[in-house]
Amino acid sequence: MLTDTKLRSLKPKASPFRVADANGLCIEVRPSGAKVWRYRYRYLGKASIVTLDEYPSMSLQAARVERDRLRSLLRGGANPAQVARVEKAVQGERAANTFGAIGLAKDLIGRINWHYLLHEDGCPGEVGEACTCGLVVAFVGRSAMVMVDSHYSYRADPIN
């Protein structure tokens, strides 16, 4: 089993190498010095590997949690690599389908009752006060278009 001290002490070599943790989780140390979490598994009898994230942006504990999530997918009959590709495609589609990405935020500023919109969602100001325009633009720019109805009322959380 790996420890954080062991991870920090790993030094790059001329070719990439892997150090195993447990249950298919390993860290790959590349010649550039990058350390990448990888999960090795078998799906339908074929060996596969999926990259999780870089160390230290993903801690040892977070990598183990992600490994356990992928193991449960595998036990459920899903291919973790395919699931990851689908999740990435869905996230990319959601991110590309925002007011900010399409450039509609400036056009909508004059059409939406921002004060009403923000006060309904817990803006700390009183009715009749003006809200900060910068906050509103960020709020709308990160909101998926499918989350706004014809009356311009916000229905769901903004995209992270």
Rank of each mutant, 00 (worst) to 15 (best):
L135W: 14
N97E: 00
G110M: 03
H119C: 10
G103E: 04
S72R: 11
A95Q: 06
V83C: 07
R71E: 03
K46C: 06
R67D: 00
L74H: 03
L118N: 04
I109W: 10
A84T: 08
P80H: 08
I102Y: 06
G128I: 03
E126S: 13
E87P: 03
D68L: 02
S48R: 15
D107N: 12
L70G: 02
E93R: 09
I112P: 01
A95V: 05
R42A: 13
R67Y: 00
A89W: 01
Q91M: 07
A105T: 15
R67A: 01
C131F: 12
D68W: 02
S59V: 01
G134W: 15
H119K: 14
Q61Y: 08
D53A: 10
E120T: 14
P56S: 01
L73T: 06
G103M: 04
I49S: 13
V50T: 12
R71P: 00
Q61G: 05
S59D: 00
C131P: 09
S59G: 04
V65M: 07
I102H: 09
T132L: 15
P80D: 07
A84R: 13
E93V: 06
D121Y: 14
S72V: 07
R64C: 02
A78S: 15
T132V: 15
K88N: 03
I112L: 03
E54R: 09
L104W: 13
A47S: 15
A96I: 00
L73R: 11
A95F: 05
Q61D: 09
A47Q: 11
L118D: 05
T98K: 01
R94M: 06
K106V: 10
A95D: 09
D68T: 02
D121K: 15
R69V: 10
Y55L: 00
V137H: 08
E66G: 01
L60F: 00
L117C: 09
W114A: 11
R85G: 01
V136G: 08
G77W: 11
E66D: 03
A81K: 10
N97Y: 02
A130Q: 12
L135N: 15
T98F: 03
